[in-house]
Design a binder for these strands. Structure first.
Length: 296
DNA sequence: AAATTGGTCAACCGCAATAAA
DNA sequence: TTTTATTGCGGTTGACCAATT
């Protein structure tokens, strides 16, 4: 049958958002909460498709978003999470509060990929790089599937172990597992260029601060609705958990919304740090791998 | 000073998953 | 159980800006 694209209707505007449109969207979300994006264009008069509205909100207007200037810790974390999870940006973003998956994806594509390939060229791409390179999908003969799985998991495990232990700034993991996001005091990002419009967005975000009831919730308010609650705003700390789904990955994972990023990562860490290494089977049980094939 | 090149990032597109009817 | 509607995700594109020639 084939469902028509959401934006097939005539008169749907595309391209960059104007500050006016942003304001309209923000004030609508302010009144109604995020979610039910379908209704946004009709109720606001915005000539944008619902998808575009949602994207604009989650990637740009949502309060608490940090932009640009990835710290070293963030960088390392992304590299290693990418080695572990593959290109599941939403899952990776769930470990980086205030970062959007789009932002991380862009950062990966523009900076890290090159950086890693440079490292690869200059020698053996230590750890993550290698894992990343290998994580490209290639049709491996069935017989090798298991072996490669174990190899890659081992590599990823080492990579993440390094990431967790290397960084002095990250007091984590060695002793007690903690949710990563809390471990990373984020330096305030200076906005070099692009600041002009970004700052206007920040202003918009500030407008929302009053709306973001501390503690309660936006989460609570957003909880109306079924899946919309997942994307519900969240602002502030909750923000990260909001736009991205579960760390389990975008697809394949049953919506384990109850298990937020934090527990998932704790599980990951305990798996990682578990000394029963090398006995893949047992270890694998706890691995948040939605689909082992993702490692190939 | 103008033209070209390369980098960055916001936004779009298509597909998949899931909920609702 | 099947169909339809909606949302979420990842890949990709294209516009903009800065650096270089």
């Amino acid at each position: 049958m084939g469902r028509p694209p959401c934006c097939e209707k005539t008169g749907v505007k595309k391209g960059p958002w104007t500050p006016e449109e942003d304001l309209v969207l923000v004030s609508y979300v302010q009144d109604h909460g995020p979610g039910n994006w379908r209704a946004v264009p009709t109720n606001t008069g915005l000539m944008r498709c619902s998808k575009s509205c949602r994207l604009r909100w989650t990637n740009y207007l949502r309060p608490g978003i940090k932009r640009g200037n990835f710290s070293d810790q963030e960088e390392k974390l992304i590299i290693h999470l990418q080695a572990l999870l593959g290109n599941r940006w939403a899952a990776i973003a769930s470990y980086l509060p205030d970062r959007t998956d789009n932002d991380i994806k862009n950062f990966w594509n523009t900076h890290l990929k090159k950086k890693l390939s440079r490292m690869d060229a200059g020698g053996d791409g230590a750890g993550a790089g290698g894992a990343v390179a290998r994580s490209g999908r290639s049709a491996a003969p069935k017989g090798q599937w298991e072996r490669r799985l174990q190899t890659d998991i081992h590599t990823a495990r080492q990579a993440l172990r390094e990431a967790l232990s290397l960084d002095p700034a990250l007091p984590l993991a060695k002793t007690e597992p903690q949710p990563l996001p809390l471990l990373m005091p984020q330096p305030a990002p200076a906005q070099p260029s692009q600041a002009a419009y970004a700052s206007s967005a920040e202003n918009i975000a500030r407008l929302l601060e009053g709306w973001m009831r501390p503690g309660t919730g936006s989460a609570g308010k957003a909880s109306s609705g079924s899946r919309s609650s997942a994307s519900a705003v969240s602002g502030g700390e909750g923000a990260s958990a909001s736009h991205s789904s579960t760390p389990g990955g975008s697809t394949g994972t049953s919506k384990a919304e109850d298990a937020g990023p934090v527990p998932a990562f704790s599980m990951l860490e305990s798996w990682l740090l578990d000394d029963g290494m090398g006995h893949g089977d047992a270890g694998l049980m706890g691995v948040p791998l939605a689909d082992p094939c993702e490692f190939f």
